[in-house]
Amino acid sequence: MQKEIMLCAIDNILSGSCREDCKFCTQSIHHGADIERYRLKSTEEIVKDAKIARANKAVGFCMVTAGKALEDKHVEFLCKTAKAVKKAVPEFNLIACNGTATKEQLKALQASGVDSYNHNLETSENYYPQICTTHGWSERYKTCENVKSTGLNLCSGGIFGMGESEQDREELIAAIQTLQPKSVPLNFFMKNPALPLEVEPITPAQALKIVRYARAQLPGQKLMAAGGRESTFGTDQKPLFEAGIDAIVIGDYLTAKGESCDKDIAMIQSYGYGIAKRCR
């Protein structure tokens, strides 16, 4: 049976005003990255983005807001918008990614049609203080537990190539394993001149080793190649899928341009894979 690759689109619906100091993130106000900043997009604009994503064969659609935590004042807006997106594209696996969140907030999102919540652990608990000093790793883990307890599907992964050791990578994947998420985004750190992380880019060989290890440790999870796919692998991405990737982020990332959707789809098909018609 032909392997099918799932496509997921992300929509940065509130950009560039995060007060946390995560060293990998261009949306932190601490780093002064030259990015576009805006307050909440309108519901109409987000629905339009969702329709475009579906036309580009995405089966997942993720609404992302900058900031450490889901703010109560945004919950009502997200609920209204989730209902509108679901009405426009009912077949979507609708994902929210809005930072740390309480069970009550998550239940409200779920009741409005959100299917999944994305909250990455980012890196190992031990290495996290080297990456962020404004909040702790345990807060992130707690939110993932909250997601699980509400019955929302959990999407949780991390970023590789931030100067962490192999042991950190293994510990991160072991932590993800304890959460048993539905899907695991694997990001490869994308350099930006404003960011304080001075590291060599991860090599394709290192990235493939991570994917293979994650595949072995997380056999029941959907493994998604997310940020850094193009910058790490260029146009030779077949080994990623052979190593166990079964989903990718298509289109633009939060603040970085992605490959055009048409090219990505053609690339996947040229490798002999199909494009998934729904999110499993």
Binding site: H31, G32, A33, E36, R37, Y38, P193, A194
Partner: peptide, 17 residues
């Protein structure tokens, strides 16, 4: 400069579009 959001002039940017 690398520690701050400071740029050479003229600097173009977008806020809320």
């Amino acid at each position: 400069a690398s520690s701050y959001s400071i740029y050479k002039e003229p600097h173009y940017f977008k806020l809320d579009g």
